[in-house]
Amino acid sequence: MKFQRCMTLFVAVIMALALGCASTSNSEGTGEYLDDTAITAKVQTAILQEASLTSAEINVETFKGVVQLSGFVGSRAEINTAVQVARKVEGVKSVRNDMHVKGQQ
Rank of each mutant, 00 (worst) to 15 (best):
A56E: 15
S52R: 09
M15D: 07
G29P: 05
L69G: 04
G29T: 08
G65K: 09
Y33A: 11
V89Q: 01
G71K: 00
E78I: 00
A41N: 07
E32P: 01
I58F: 05
R96T: 13
A12W: 08
M99N: 05
V43P: 02
Y33G: 00
K64C: 06
V92I: 11
V83Q: 01
K88S: 14
L17Y: 10
C6Q: 14
I79Q: 04
G65R: 10
Q84Y: 04
A38K: 04
L34N: 11
M15A: 15
M7Q: 12
V73K: 05
Q4P: 08
V67E: 04
R76K: 15
T81S: 08
T8Y: 05
V13A: 12
K42W: 06
S75I: 12
A16V: 09
Q105P: 03
G29H: 04
D98I: 11
E57F: 12
T54M: 13
E61P: 05
V95K: 01
G20W: 01
S52Y: 06
S23K: 04
I58R: 04
S52E: 10
I14R: 10
Q4S: 15
R96H: 13
T40A: 01
Q49Y: 06
E78N: 01
A46I: 02
S27N: 12
A16Q: 08
S70D: 09
F10L: 15
K88P: 02
I47Y: 05
L34Y: 13
V66A: 04
T24D: 05
I47G: 06
F3L: 14
K102V: 09
Q68V: 11
A41Y: 00
S75H: 09
T54R: 13
